[in-house]
Design a protein around this nucleic acid. Sequence first.
RNA 1: GCGGGGUUAGCUCAGUGGUAGAGCGGCUGCUUUACACGCAGCGGGUCGGCGGUUCGAACCCGUCACCCCGCACCA
Length: 924
Amino acid sequence: MLDKTFEAAAVEPRISKAWDAAEAFRAGRGAAPGADTYTIVIPPPNVTGSLHMGHALNNTLQDILIRLMRMRGRDVLWQPGLDHAGIATQMVVERQMMERQEPNRRDIGRQAFVEKVWTWKAESGGTIVNQLKRLGASCDWSRERFTMDEGLSKAVLKVFVRLYREGLIYKDKRLVNWDPKLLTAISDLEVVQTEVKGHLWHFRYPIDGEVFDPENPATFIVVATTRPETMLGDTAVAVHPEDERYTALVGRKVRLPLVGRLIPIVADEYSDPEKGSGAVKITPAHDFNDFEVGKRHGLAQISVLDVEAQVAVAGNEDFLAGVPASAELDRTVADFHGKDRFTARKLIVARMEEGGFLEKIEPHTHQVPHGDRGGVPIEPYLTDQWYVNAAELAKPAIASVREGRTAFVPKNWEKTYYDWMENIQPWCISRQLWWGHQIPAWYGPDGTVFVAESEAEAYVEAIRHYQGSEATDETFEVTAKLSGIELTRDEDVLDTWFSSALWPFSTLGWPDETPELKRYYPTNVLVTGFDIIFFWVARMMMMGLHFMETEPFSDVYIHALVRDEKGAKMSKSKGNVIDPLELIDEYGADALRFTLAAMAAQGRDIKLATSRVGGYRNFATKLWNAVRFAEMNGCARDAAFDPAAVTETINSWIVTEASKAAADVTEALDAYRFNDAAAAIYRFVWNSFCDWYLELSKPILTGEDGPAKAETRATCAYVIDEILKLLHPFMPFITEELWAATGSWGPARENLLCLTRWPEGPVRASAAADEINWLVDVISEIRSVRAEMGMTPATQVPLVLVGASEKARAWLGTHTAAIQRLARVSEVLTADAAPPQSAQIVMADGIVALPLAGVVDLDAERARLTKEEAKLLDEIGRIDKKLSNEQFVARAPEEVVEEERAKRDGYVERLAKVRAALERLKGD
RNA sequence: GCGGGGUUAGCUCAGUGGUAGAGCGGCUGCUUUACACGCAGCGGGUCGGCGGUUCGAACCCGUCACCCCGCACCA
């Protein structure tokens, strides 16, 4: 006998083990002969990560699709794995070293540090994998991949070299987003804008040739800035060409305070007359816009900060070039050199004030770019970095979506994709880190770069380049030594997303021509959150198209972000994080999964209230107890059972309803309408099967043995099987457990539920619906009236069916026992007229009278009927208004008009009966 | 500034042309032999405001208000 409740914590690990032991999730398991493939690659979670609500949702949805398709007999692969998360992982390991008071990474050197990271990965990396297993994710874990694996690294090398040779990867000196804390460049996408309350400092720059007088505006030009410390690198002041206030000054020069550099006033449309003073200082080496202005006017790029964003002016040739020596300059160098950018800011403002160059300070709130990992303001910084020509790779990726080869669901995300792809910037892929794929570029003594898949090849190329001679792979070392060439490898590593972009094919074995690659690429759908469209979707599209010449996936399902119940994004700093593992502990993985699926409506974020998880845990218990009931009543599966051949009304009805539910669930999942699918199975299980079918079957199951009882037992078991299948993608644990349990009291199961065929086929026709609807109405109405009349459940009264049709009388006969039980009725009679002092329930087909003499307050019954009369008059009035509108009759579809007429007829008929019932009560 | 989304029951949310539903919560009753993580019943919404299209609008269009999210920029 099943326990009274489902103990998720006890059952889930056992079921997981059973799946593992059966290798149930290996690619192709359960596939029908000759089946099409169905592939999903997991968006690789970060190796340092642990399961958060976003992962829980993302993987629940993927698992639902995967389990569905596996049950439908497709050749399924769900490819799992992790990415190496360059910056995050390096930070984690460095923090650990610091906590253990070990020497830092620079002390131990690159090789030792990388070894430490691998050790860390082996010990504590990838905890998320086990957490995904707890969620029930049916990935082919035997194929788990890591972006730093040998095979995937090989793919990275191949891709880098090929793109380089095609001119799509290049090295360039430009401004990058520099993180002065982590000491690396980062890409645009890794920068977040944060609102900062700062100041706008207005500085007076003296005009060359005038005697500076703070009191005389004709002797200076005012520029406003939020970043005073960059003024040391100013190389111009820009004004708008049509700004009349300044036209006379264009072409003249100003002398940069504190430094003494003579810099031009240029006319450039970048300058906005509305902002600040209308004149803007230009620092090409420290601002992206200024960089462009500088290029237009041939200005020098003077970097005045070092990698840690400290002022670096002493011995800085660019800074000193053309600047006359002066005591003031010496003081500037002495005061500021080596100072942090924020310290320097204060000092510079003080010095400007001292010299009379500070006009005013305004409070100013603005968005300041911060590194998303390091959390400090990024510094636009002039360095050499490697770039991918993303604009070129984006072209075919845009076309794929435009031409429908890859479709976004919901469709409106296409716009976001286009907007980004059409304005895409060069992708900076080099990172000044140690953990990651080291860039396969070697430099010769004169700085010539040799990009190759291995050091050996690089030497071959170098020897060819420098000496025009050939070397073979076997002898290159010798040759290299003899040639005296020494190559130095580029220190930098690649952006983690560079390797993630190859994920849909690198995990399948590319660049080798593996059978898996041939079979499972392209994949069917990528399931991800919108915040990751740029990171993954776009880049996977670009790389997939370039190297495989086929889109990596045909659908991109973009799901919601999970927020807290107030709608705020969950974050550790806000402390509003709901931990999915805690929910699993408390309610079970099935309940969490079902909640997420039920709330995953398209195009809307999920505001998660934990109370809902509790509600769906109750749903699991409900199902559990329904099966327990079946067990207690001997509802064992019957191998010879044919759902098409049942004769009992309730059996025929539930078999039809089950087929409808199957069709609804399947249709919804095929359209990625997870919430509709969840709602359909929920309604069927609870409101059809448990509330009505099981209740109606009780008289039969507790009655005498015979064909009706046997059929009902078999039907009940059959429907439970159908339910377990339909619910399995959503609630894999409890359904697998019940599949095994029900297998123990009927014919043995041939297979695990996860490898069992999904219910397919058309909705079964049945004539039983009218009869069951009638029955449900009768019972519901009686219950309602009883409650309204204040009758206790213990009070039993007879039921008298008055003026009913042949059909209704027959139905009454069939279901007497059920009505007695569910409506608490002592006996069931028919009559031509209602007995005196009855409550009279007006049905479409006759009156159900409950003789209540002495049991109930007749005034209350009169009031009830009067209320109903008023309501009916209301309805009739409303319909009359509609029907008397000529436009409605003329223009509305025929069937709608007919429907209204039929409704009216029904109401009129009821009204007559209600009035008759009232009349009868008058006599009592 | 550009773009996307939202505003429906006390709360969290479904519902894309025929006068509204779920879960949770509330109220009343129930030791009805599957389930109190339950059963039965009840209450609760002028579907953000205004205007338009339509025979008919929660739904389509316009507009206003408020909220959220991207992107860009900010001297």
